[in-house]
């Protein structure tokens, strides 16, 4: 297994959106064709760093998400690399058809940033906690779907998106979460990584849930259960090889995402394993339910997305599977 170069100290917290903001500023410095558009959430999506540095390359469209992505499609047609940001509930929540027609079918390299995804949005409640964006975007031909695990990876992903010729969607979270990857941790669009090697059960995780998966592995190590954590930062196209290799080894796979379990990462992995390597599986995510107001940690626990909850799912999967075999 290649060296992952994680940070030694995981106590620092930062938000994915902040990583995006830093990455976009850097992308703007590297390439003058990078432009940015926002629908009245510039600071909240951390696009203000770019907007302040490059005002002539920033377009404020107002509260108009349909316009946001279609204006960007037009700019991409003229050679620009547009990043568009809003909350995921509105973009791609409200403007999905415009994305489908003018960006995906039209194959324009627009970079759609959906911030405030997941229940960890917290007090704003269900309307603003986007849980359906992964299936929405994964279903679109030509679209690349990315969900980085921490602020540092979000920054790398942003730079990689600026260099990618395809339409991209990146989902971000609002809340500051532990930063555990370093600038030296490998990242490539389309590649999954074994973040921790193990032999008994695989947790395939994406976005903020990768940290929870690593914590789960620590908890279960005390119970002599060896967990392999596969981090999927690109949900589409899916790195099938890394998942199949791990599933072949552990024969038990759990998926973890801060999103609906229907059609998201869990769906993608179930489709893959169902066709190529039927494996005992469980999906962790929000189960056909909307979110609600509360503190992020509180909600993560309530919806069973924390390390303790995942550990229980893993233990049950191992027990059930063993019993089933006898």
């Amino acid at each position: 297994m290649p060296e992952m170069h994680f940070k030694h100290d995981w106590s620092e917290k930062d938000s994915l959106r902040k990583g995006f903001g830093m990455g976009l500023l850097e992308a703007g410095k590297r390439n003058k064709n990078v432009v940015a558009l926002c629908a009245d959430l510039t600071e909240s999506t951390q696009m203000h760093l770019f907007a302040e540095e490059f005002p002539e390359r920033f377009v404020q469209v107002g509260v108009a998400e349909q316009n946001l992505v279609t204006v960007a499609a037009g700019m991409a047609a003229m050679g620009k690399i547009p990043f568009v940001s809003s909350y995921a509930a509105f973009s791609p929540g409200r403007n999905w058809e415009q994305i489908r027609t003018t960006i995906a079918l039209n194959d324009r390299p627009v970079k759609i940033i959906g911030s405030h995804a997941g229940v960890s949005v917290g007090p704003d409640g269900a309307t603003h906690q986007m849980l359906e964006d992964i299936p929405l975007m994964r279903a679109l031909p030509n679209m690349v779907v990315i969900a980085p695990c921490d602020s540092v990876e979000a920054q790398k992903a942003t730079l990689a998106m600026a260099a990618d010729k395809r339409p991209n969607y990146m989902r971000l979270a609002r809340e500051a979460t532990p930063v555990f990857t370093s600038p030296h941790t490998p990242f490539e669009i389309g590649k999954g990584y074994v973040f921790r090697a193990g032999t008994d059960v695989t947790i395939v995780a994406t976005g903020t849930m990768t940290y929870q998966a690593l914590e789960t592995a620590k908890l279960l190590a005390h119970k002599y259960i060896s967990v392999e954590v596969v981090h999927i930062s690109t949900i589409k196209p899916l790195d099938e090889e890394v998942i199949l290799n791990s599933a072949a080894k552990t024969r038990h796979v759990i998926t973890a995402e801060e999103a609906q379990i229907a059609g998201g990462l869990g769906g993608a992995v179930a489709e893959l394993l169902g066709e190529k390597l039927p494996t005992s599986m469980a999906r962790v995510g929000v189960k056909d339910h909307f979110g609600e107001s509360g503190e992020p940690d509180e909600l993560i626990k309530y919806f069973g997305l924390d390390a303790e909850a995942i550990a229980k799912v893993a233990q049950k999967l191992l027990t059930d599977h063993t019993n089933h075999k006898h």
Partner: peptide, 25 residues
């Protein structure tokens, strides 16, 4: 053909984006 269209209401935005990009350059 310049762009893909059919679902209504998005051509004017795309044209505006194109015009803005030309102006930026």
């Amino acid at each position: 053909m310049e762009t893909t269209s059919g679902p209504l209401g998005s051509g004017l935005s795309q044209a505006t984006g194109m015009a803005l990009a030309l102006k930026m350059d």
